[in-house]
Design a protein around this nucleic acid. Structure first.
Lengths: 364, 364
DNA sequence: GCTACGATTGAGACCGGACTCACAGTGGGT
DNA sequence: ACCCACTGTGAGTCCGGTCTCAATCGTAGC
């Protein structure tokens, strides 16, 4: 069973070399499987390594190969199933290519993201996958590119940054699903998101999240196509915590101009919106229709099952990791991987507003 | 503004030293903030570092300090919200203490876990947090301890391994909640889990997951305390994918001896169980009662809301990371952190079986 | 029998920091 | 004026691998 017990110092090539009675260089060659080594030496070295249970120090190896076989991933919050799934896609792809993954959460705070990127760069990761908290301020990401290390964006784009981006096409699906709501008779369509802004929503305002911008854009275009105008008073951003989402929801449902449909920007929001609706004694879709982003399994279980926008999140993560690794290894970018398109899954949470007429081209 | 454009080679202390006109040693001291350095030198060095936008190579630093400030986390599947939440606890705690986290999924396969541990050890992580796929075979974990690196277990225990373990006390809550079901009149209580076994369940059989063992143990003791015997024919393991869970569920609900209550071992299982119940045209809790592990937010949204066993998963992750870091830094283990106890949250999915009498001590 | 070329081999440089050690300069104590 | 403690400083080693380079060896070719 060889030596037992905890040892303080790790076994190194030098130790193995000594045990096998060869030079350090030869031992390294035999262990690293490079250069010319005679069968005799190779056997002795491998035997000695086995005996001493030698394990290479990847840190040292990385030091002079300049490759750490590690990629850094920066996301808002791994607890969010959306990122959990993307992360799974990333780690699966990374593992297949022999890479490890260091994960850092930012809570969608730019300062944390800047710091995260700095730390990962200092750790000499081979590349970075970032879901940028802000699509607007991206000096720190430009800095990554300056440093010469590959960078790939996940889930959101960043303006003025020439980086491969893997995000689901939001404008198209938002356009399509808003049309769906309008055709069901809805005019008062609300949109609730956690994205932070300085003031209330104004059309065309610059948002931190390209995703949300695209979604709002899609909504607006859908209204326009129908010859209508989007009710911008129903766009509610800054819905941070559960309580504020419930408050916003109650507010949206009040008065003569109440919303008849609500689009929840993600699963967490939908959760609180549904609860607020139930507490108000209203029913879905009888009194209000609901549409949410992300097709989580549990959306099939609610009463009614929720109509959702399914996003290929796992594939997105996987594609991002593969693209990054391709860049790292200097191979040419793959000819357009899978298009990341979302799809509307019609279940039971969208109906026609009370006393609504069917779609009328000039309606209002 | 300094130099622009991508550079191939990173700036090193030597470069900074040259630019500041001091020796490498002095530059290193000024940058590393150790040893004696005159104000004059410090200023020149820091200015030069700034100018060249010098960043330390953490790899090199790790090499001769022997510390990587990185911990390795090995879990079954980060896509599972249970681990997602635990992971968040871990990363939060790690970040606070200045550690980074490398994540590896195993899909609950031992071979993958062995490999994961090996890789992390090679990467010289400062410590490991592992949710062992098997509580029985743990040579690879003993090997970690042999290597002298701290190891902490998450979510499950491992027999014959002297490692700090952070897992929720399952035996107690399982006992308590089974009593709750029995007192509601249930006798035919089923338990569905994905844990893999070679054959059908036999009381006392060795399971890979200490968690599941503990839960079954709690169930058995609850029955015994009531002077009853647990219906072991209703314990269904190996419920891997959605389809097999539905099949098992349909089977459990058939015949004169059908189950009147089902305990789902996790959220994924509950999902398919509920769907199978609904498809069978049965209602919860009218026809069958349901109890599931983990209090995910969406369990409040189903009809009826689900009665669940809430586990402090975030705290578990956080405590595990903190304990690991404490070990890494050689500090004495904290005097018993938060007790990780689960609690039964009674919502609407548990009722009395049809035509059931209330609890009768000798009943059957 | 002699040369040439490929296979082997060992010494040592190197990656980029941290740290040891010897030595110079300074000021206090006496 | 003399010794000593202490701050500053630079040369150089070390961590644990990879890799270059020159030397050695064996033998195939002539």
């Amino acid at each position: 069973m060889s030596t037992t017990g905890s040892r303080r110092r790790d076994i190194t090539v030098a130790d193995v070399a000594k045990a096998a009675n060869v030079s350090k260089a030869q031992a390294a060659r035999a262990l690293g499987n490079y250069g010319a080594v005679s069968d005799d030496v190779r056997e002795r070295v491998l035997a000695a390594a086995e005996e001493l249970s030698y394990r290479p120090n990847e840190l040292a190896r990385s030091m002079n190969t300049g490759k750490s076989n590690t990629i850094g991933v920066v996301v808002g919050d791994i607890e969010n199933p959306h990122f959990g799934l993307a992360m799974r896609g990333i780690t699966d792809a990374a593992k297949r290519s022999g890479y490890n993954v260091i994960l850092i959460n930012t809570d969608e705070e730019r300062a944390a993201e800047v710091e995260a990127v700095r730390v990962l760069l200092d750790k000499r990761v081979d590349g970075l996958i970032v879901a940028p908290a802000s699509s607007v301020e991206s000096q720190h990401l430009q800095h990554v590119q300056h440093s010469g290390r590959p960078l790939v964006l996940l889930d959101r784009a960043a303006h003025g940054l020439d980086a491969e981006t893997f995000a689901v096409d939001m404008a198209a699906i938002s356009f399509e699903s808003t049309k769906y709501l309008i055709e069901a008779g809805h005019r008062r369509i609300a949109f609730v998101s956690t994205v932070r802004t300085d003031g209330p929503y104004v059309p065309g305002m610059l948002l931190d999240s390209s995703q949300i911008s695209d979604r709002l854009d899609g909504i607006r275009r859908a209204f326009e196509e129908k010859g209508l105008t989007q009710p911008v008073d129903l766009v509610r951003l800054n819905a941070g915590d559960e309580e504020s989402i419930r408050r916003v929801t109650r507010d949206l449902l009040q008065g003569p101009d109440a919303a008849t449909a609500i689009i929840a920007s993600d699963g967490l929001i939908a959760l609180s919106v549904v609860e607020a609706i139930q507490e108000s004694g209203l029913s879905i879709p009888g009194d209000v229709s609901l549409l949410m982003y992300d097709d989580f399994p549990w959306t099939r279980l609610t009463t009614p099952p929720l109509t959702v926008i399914a996003q290929p999140v796992y594939d997105m993560g996987k594609a991002a990791a593969n693209a990054l690794i391709r860049q790292i290894e200097g191979r040419k970018p793959a000819a357009g991987g899978p298009a990341l398109t979302a799809s509307l899954i019609r279940r039971g949470s969208v109906g026609s507003p009370k006393g609504a007429k069917v779609y009328s081209p000039a309606g209002g």
